[in-house]
Design a binder for these strands. Structure first.
Lengths: 225, 225
DNA sequence: TCCTTTCTTCAGAATTTATTCAATATTTGT
DNA sequence: ACAAATATTGAATAAATTCTGAAGAAAGGA
């Protein structure tokens, strides 16, 4: 699936240069020549916005501010382009949440590298198949994160492991034995009740999704498909 | 802000001559007399290294190779100095990643001109753009600088590396293992507590941004998005 | 060399997480 | 419906992990 980059830049030559190179790299390219245009095109939710600070109408800083304020667009990574490195202070002072910051002129390969990096960074949490989605519950195993209704809820290690293990085997009933050897290993001895207690804590955290975890008496637990 | 040049040369007379002239031009000068010394001093991250090929211990070519291999020093421009000007040397030297190549003897004004040119080239187009912004904290990795609320705060090397590493991976939890192998390398052994202590120092310096770094017990640390 | 800075180790305090316990509730099989 | 088995719950206890202040090493500079 090809990624879309929105270029916001008023100098036509630069636009062409960037467009050409990005397309060559397999990106889908959108272009805006001024701030207003940029805000419009941003509604298409590109994977990244390459934004020149010095553009007409609302300038790049203002555009960034508005994009970050709007919930629909606030997650889109932004790379700011600016001519002078002294403008950095300004950017910082405004605390506007750009993801990267590049001073012109910059070499194309370097720019491409940074674009890819920013996109990769943004993607990891969601895109990878290390993420399991169960209704409104998102389990991100590489980042030790659980989102419940888009809100991050902290799970201590054992609880996280247990939830993840059940989720990885959703649809299947997991015997208590299996849980013990999967989470605790075969060497460790813990009481059977320990599992219950962790299950309870997990359910508490899951809130309205608590009954995602079903108990099969005499056997174990499972998460529904 | 004055630039630092590291002179690597074993002949004392030449060192003095270069040192005198560079200082007169406003450069800050470091000196190393052999390869080992050079690699050490390079950790100070000078703005340029003037490197004689014919030095004791690891020779100039080897030093170049190592400097280019190490992520910390690979960006430092190197001017190689050599007595012979055979083509072979030239090819080899430049292939190693040296930025310029000068045969002795060379006139001082000419040498100064090349030094300035190399520094200028390195500074303008490419550098300065690997800046990570986290709220009011700006991490400038090419210049080894951290700004907190626009004020520069000095971070010793390990602390800087650690902060940068977490920042480069913001949003994701970095396991202690990964921290150890990324910052200390796989050969070195340091206690786990060492990480904590560095984290603490970083947090102290971050002041009101201290909780940018979250600890995930039993796993590691992370910087929030 | 001596002095300063940075890095690492140490050990007790503080905190968080994991486990056990015991009383209660639920399910299962007869 | 009743006993037996199994799970849930709230609270207490134990274990683990990290934080902290301070001290010892190591590295670098004067």
């Amino acid at each position: 699936m090809s990624k879309t980059v929105l270029i916001v830049e008023d100098e036509k030559d630069i636009v062409e240069l960037l467009k050409y190179n990005l397309q060559k790299e397999g990106f889908n390219v959108l272009v805006a020549h001024n701030g207003k245009d940029a805000l419009d095109k941003a509604k298409k939710i590109p994977n990244l916005i390459l934004l020149d600070v010095m553009i007409p109408e609302p300038d790049g800083l203002e555009v960034t501010r508005r994009l970050k304020k709007d919930k629909e667009t606030s997650h889109i990574p932004i790379i700011l382009l600016t001519a002078k490195s002294t403008e950095l202070d300004e950017v910082v002072g405004l605390e506007l949440g750009a993801d990267d910051y590049i001073t012109k002129p910059v070499s194309i390969p370097r720019l491409l590298a940074r674009i890819k990096k920013v996109i990769r960074n943004k993607e990891n949490p969601t895109e990878k198949n290390s993420t399991i989605i169960l209704d409104g519950v998102v389990i991100d195993s590489t980042n030790y994160k659980v989102l419940i209704d888009k809100k991050e809820i902290f799970f201590p290690r054992k609880e996280f492991q247990l939830l993840l293990y059940l989720a990885e085997n959703k649809g299947r009933v997991i015997k208590r034995d299996s849980i013990l050897s999967a989470i605790w290993g075969d060497g460790v001895v813990v009481l059977d009740r320990t599992i219950d207690v962790h299950i309870r804590k997990i359910r508490e955290k899951l809130g309205k999704y608590a009954d995602l975890i079903q108990t099969i008496k005499g056997v174990g637990y499972r998460i529904e498909y």
